[in-house]
Amino acid sequence: MNNQQLNAGALIFFGVFILPLVFNWLTCECYKTSNRQVVQKISETGYINYEELQTLLNNNETKGFLILDVRPHHIYKEGHLHGAVNVPFTELREKQHRKTLKTSNPIIIYSDEQKLSVAAQVMLLGQGYDGVFVIPGGYESIRAFAIDNFVPARAFYNEDKAMFDYPRFMKLDPVQAERKAPGIFAIPGAEDITPVPGGC
């Protein structure tokens, strides 16, 4: 019974898995949350509507939240929401802002374009921050309908809602319209689990 080969084998086996792990940990400090989890978190958090924003801003007791302005510096200087902190979209990952972001929860994002706020939200969730929300609409509309004078009719405004009755404008082939969910399972051979023959 000689153990040298076993010891050597075990060490190599250990090294093969641990070294890439360490290497990955040292080099790739890209994301703190896996892609799958980000998608899941997005569906859970999402937006903060104008009414909720009103309540939040008018209630003096709530603390710790952060209103984040992700527009460029020069636009921020022209006018911004009261108490908003400016971290331009391109600087989201810079070290100097990390402390501010880390100590705040929830983080509430706005910008000129809703899609940019959402991009910032996805980015921050991927960096491991929790409770990241987006104020729908751009700065002007937030200013007009949520801050300066609250318009209840616009409370649930969101650019990502359907604004038109689409089928009225663009008539589709009735066959296509009736066909339920084409495409989803239409790829042959690309099922979720590919059967692997095996066993004995």
């Binding site: 019974m1 080969q5 084998g9």
Partner: peptide, 24 residues
């Protein structure tokens, strides 16, 4: 052969079977 070494080698063969052919 040292049974643990044999087991370790057998484990590697098994692992190789999974890596190459996707089955045990």
């Amino acid at each position: 052969m040292n049974p643990y070494l044999a087991g370790f080698l057998l484990g590697l063969v098994l692992l190789a079977a999974f890596v190459i052919s996707g089955r045990g």
